[in-house]
Amino acid sequence: MSLSAGGYGQNMLPVAATITGIDRLTDKDCVFSIRLSKGGILRFRASQFVILSLFGIGEAPISISSSPLDSEKSFELCIRVVGNLTRAVHRLSVGDKVGIRGPYGNGFPMERIEGRDVVIVAGGLGLAPLRSLIRHVIHERDRYGRVIVLIGAKRPQDILFKEDILLWEANPSIEVHLTVDVAVPPWDKHVGVITKLFRYVDVDSLNAVAAVVGPPIMYRFVVSEILNKGLFEGNIYLSLERRMRCGIGKCGHCQINGIYLCQDGPVLSYMEARKLKEAL
């Protein structure tokens, strides 16, 4: 059995899955390792999402935080407590069962970034889907040019995937810059909004791509910094978060003008996104 993005009529049923690991990242975020039952394999791309269901409670869309190249057998979801379902997920333990359907969404166009410099900009929870991309790029590092990762968080204690970030910092083949809006001692990294980190971005601008995920307020300022670096609008990819319900382009919750983000997105190039009113 294998789940993969498909057309109408596929992947609409949740399949049973088991929580195989839980790692606490912050006071409100945990990473859940999940394995599909009966040896099922989730075939996905970076920046795709699944719809997680809890029996008797409901469903929620969650982006995948592990890389497709990490493991065939399991994948990771970073879940923040924001409401009913996510609160219930945080009460689960290793061995508990959940439902998974998907993956949904277009995912990140890996084939279009091959051979290019890559700038990855993650604000807050935006690191959850971008961690998938970062790991993907590290796993096949030779296929890309320079890789620069900019990460912003509110406070040091809000930084997601701290251990991963340390591991990326230890990796001489990528550059990582980290900032917080509000420093708390003994913080020794940057302080200020994420746009301050662009002074460290030195790329082959005509041939570089950027991937940006963060809170809505971040996009306008970050995109303007990236354009200042000389990147083309078509080479700037944004992942737009809207409330996704069905995941299959039916319910209309994620609709922006004529597109359904759950299918046509969540990843759009800035060239596409800027044409959509309300998108940014």
């Binding site: 040091p156 930084i159 701290k162 251990e163 970030i165 340390l166 591991l167 910092e169 230890a170 980290l178 420093a183 708390v184 001692p185 003994p186 913080w187 020794d188 990294k189």
Partner: peptide, 11 residues
């Protein structure tokens, strides 16, 4: 990297 991000050794 300072303690603020976590006083762990990685890897």
């Amino acid at each position: 990297m300072g303690q603020a991000i976590g006083d762990v050794t990685v890897p």
